[in-house]
Design a protein around this nucleic acid. Structure first.
Length: 738
DNA sequence: TGAATCGATGTTTTT
DNA sequence: CATCGATTCA
């Protein structure tokens, strides 16, 4: 026991030792939160608590995985039976395990955001709502928020009628139909996972009690991000023993737009009268100057839990503020900054670039590519969001649950089998009128409803689903996937195409097959159901590890919980960060917390930049620096902008460009000449050169006008004589030089 | 039915 | 600007 506690500071120790009764841990940025949680789990186990009596919930799989690993490392793997999972996967587990008792069909599916939106659009069509007047996305948002608040369609209707909320009444109508459809399709969305669990527990108190008995010790991480439904759920589970420990930081609450209610953390002490509160205030991550500047920003928020972060760390690193001319200049500056500092002995994995919006990644990506610097973008184009993967997944979903209309419509004519939009619509109307799914409807329709050729196509489609449905229990998931690919001729179809993107699709599907294989090897639950539900809840963040020699790019939201020696925050401009409308003080405060989160990710050096102008949607916007830079205390530097001429140092930009620089004099002297050694860029061995005339099988003759990437990644833009411009992957395009 | 072109529109953030 | 969706044309 001594060795378990000896590496903890007094506050941390206090948090670990208080095992009985409610406990709230206010864990400031970088104060060793995960350390406390894992030590607490280890300590509980050491005190004789059974591992299966402990539940720890987090928000991301990544956090859950890390927690699991560290808890097991501490306890010689005694924590493997501790339930450590995300809210969503925990509820998924409960709903699957108790499906029979809860009266839920066990082969339900989890719909992702795209599928949800499809259902919303269906509902709106059925209700004859104009999607110009009512944005499907905004209706879906409101429905999701309702679920976060445990509000059923009936309750919502009641509320909006009472308030005379006309828009709300429309939403409530859609919501009601939406839920009905999900039920017909036997699908749940993200919000349902939590809400249905709570509803089921209310309906079956004996089952709830079983879990109250099981989870005698409950830990909730990132408590400031919980929504009402999650708050109720954890409250219910903890009601009997009240051994609930929540950990969070009100200053890092950045998900209110997703339904998180900061009052959950602010009111915890009121909710549990004999609650103990511990504050972790010693920061082990950042330098004093970083903490000071971050503090200057966050202190402008009202209603905060009083706290004072401090650190014993050396004040070694630096903080820089750069003004750039535009987004491309900013991107070059990012590259320069990394190049210059890499020579101080940092690895590329020591650098992270944070931005407010995903769209900002493009310019930076381009600059990184031009300079040949390896990078990793987290959060954009997820593997499972690629069309071809979604297609194969749709088949798997149908084989699992043929009532899934969304998947049905997605692939009924993929690959093409002569089933057009009108036929599908007829089938859908028929199914709707009978209150059955489209797949079931296939049993009843004849040529009187649907044209002959379409019907043949639909029957072929049905046979594929039926056959695989029958045989699925005798096959591994990989075998099912291969069977689907074979039965549908999906790859055969793509092979006929000469387009480079179709070649890439084939590779993606092959990669998908390997991913499935990988899953079957590592997962304890290798059923199709297990696979589908797991996949629904993973993001590409979860698989990311900062091991490779690459720069990391991500949004500020994704940065929470991470740390880097060097952090670059770009786009610090009014209107972009903070984004939105300053009349909403609470939104502005959330932006400020986001800034605070971003700054406190940095361990040694912090680079913050803004641009005087930026192109947004093809229009040039002129900017003023973000208020957060002023709040941080860079007032003097920002009000005294000096335009200096600097030689652009990006490797592949041949021209000298003018850049306006404003440096923080206290911290850096940028007058010294920038020198750096050339970085390793793979040699250009490609036969293609800009200006060459080439021939393409499909598009004919053309001229290469642009080239990027190296080796297998090389892409060329060709202007064809038919007037078309195409971006092609050289590897596949098979261009003949003329 | 399918492809091609035109036009509107804008996601800020995601388990 | 670029992407998605809808409309139009073959």
């Amino acid at each position: 026991m001594e060795n378990l506690l000896e590496n903890l500071n007094p506050a941390q120790k206090e948090a670990v030792l208080h095992t009985e009764g409610p406990l709230i841990i206010f864990a400031g940025a970088g104060t060793g939160k995960t350390r406390v949680i894992t030590h607490r789990i280890a300590y509980l186990l050491e005190q004789g608590v059974r591992p299966y009596n402990i539940l720890a919930v987090t928000f991301t799989n990544k956090a859950a995985n890390e927690m699991r690993k560290r808890a097991n490392d501490l306890t010689n793997n005694a924590a493997i039976d501790v339930k450590i999972s995300t809210f969503h996967s925990f509820c998924l587990y409960l709903l699957s395990f108790e499906a029979k008792n809860f009266g839920i069909a066990p082969n339900f599916l989890v719909y992702d955001a795209g599928e949800q939106l499809n259902v919303i659009k269906e509902c709106m069509k059925d209700l004859k709502l104009d999607d110009k007047r009512f944005k499907p996305m905004s209706i879906l948002n409101r429905i999701s928020r309702a679920k976060d608040d445990l509000m059923t369609p009936e309750k919502m209707l009641e509320t909006v009628q009472k308030n005379g909320d006309f828009y709300g009444q429309t939403v409530a109508a859609v919501y009601g139909l939406y839920q009905k459809k999900l039920q017909t399709y036997n699908a749940l969305d993200f919000g349902d996972l939590i809400m249905q669990t709570v509803i089921s527990f209310l309906r079956y108190p004996d089952i709830l009690e079983k879990y109250q008995e099981r989870f005698k010790y409950i830990l909730v991480d990132e408590y400031q991000d919980t929504n009402h439904a999650q708050y109720v759920l954890t409250g219910m589970l903890a009601e009997k023993y009240k051994n609930i420990c929540v950990v969070g930081d009100d200053d890092q609450s950045i998900y209110s737009w997703r339904g998180a209610d900061i009052n959950n953390i602010l009111d915890f002490e009121k909710d549990y009268s004999n609650c103990k509160a511990v504050k972790l205030e010693q920061n082990y991550r950042s330098t004093p100057k970083i903490l000071k500047r971050a503090w200057n920003v966050i202190k402008n928020n009202g209603g905060r839990v009083p706290k004072q972060l401090w650190t014993e760390n050396d004040d070694s690193g630096e903080i820089f503020v750069y003004q750039n001319f535009n987004e491309n200049d900013e991107a070059d500056r990012v590259v320069d900054t990394i190049l210059i500092n890499k020579h101080k002995g940092y690895k590329l994995s020591d650098f992270a670039v944070f931005y407010r919006t995903n769209a900002q990644s493009r310019a930076i990506e381009d600059a990184l590519r031009r300079s040949g610097m390896p990078y990793n973008i987290i959060g954009t184009l997820k593997f499972y969001e690629r069309a071809e993967i979604k297609d194969v997944m749709a088949y798997l979903k149908l084989i699992h649950n043929p009532n899934d209309n969304v998947s049905f419509k997605r692939v009924a004519n993929v690959p093409k089998r002569g089933v057009g939009k009108t036929s599908l619509e007829k089938l859908e109307n028929f199914a709707n009128s009978k209150g059955i799914s489209m797949y079931e409807a296939l049993n009843f329709v004849g040529t009187d409803t649907i044209g002959k050729s379409s019907l043949t196509g639909l029957n072929n489609f049905r046979m594929i689903i039926e056959k695989n449905f029958r045989t699925k229990f005798n096959k591994s998931i990989k075998e099912i996937v291969l069977s689907v690919i074979d039965d549908t001729g999906y790859i055969r179809d793509l092979e006929k195409s000469l387009l480079p993107e179709d070649k890439a699709r084939i590779e993606n599907i092959q990669e998908f097959v390997s991913a499935v294989e990988d899953f079957e090897q590592r997962s304890p639950d290798t059923t199709l159901a297990g696979y589908l539900t797991q996949v629904a809840l993973v993001s590409d963040m979860d698989s990311w590890q900062n091991g490779e020699e690459k720069v990391t790019l991500m949004t500020l939201h994704l940065a929470k919980g991470l740390e880097f020696k060097n952090v670059l925050i770009v786009g610090l401009e009014e209107g972009l960060f903070p984004i939105g409308d300053e009349t909403h003080e609470d939104e502005m405060e959330e932006e400020r917390r986001l800034m605070y989160v971003g700054m406190t990710r940095a361990k040694e050096n912090l680079y913050m930049m803004w641009t005087s102008q930026r192109t947004v949607y093809g229009k040039t916007k002129f900017n003023v620096p973000s208020r957060f830079l002023l709040e941080a205390g860079f007032t003097e530097q920002l009000s005294n902008i000096s335009a200096r001429r600097v030689v652009n140092s990006s490797r592949f930009v041949p021209k000298e460009t003018v850049r306006y620089v404003n440096d923080v004099k206290d911290f850096v002297n940028y007058d010294e000449e920038i020198t750096y050694e050339p970085i390793d860029v793979p040699e250009d061995t490609s036969p293609y050169k800009i200006g060459m005339n080439v021939f393409h099988q499909v598009f004919g003759n053309g001229k290469i006008v642009e080239k990027s990437g190296r080796g297998d990644d090389e892409k060329v833009i060709v202007s064809f004589s038919n007037g078309q411009w195409k971006k092609l992957l050289s590897k596949y395009a098979n261009l003949k030089i003329l």
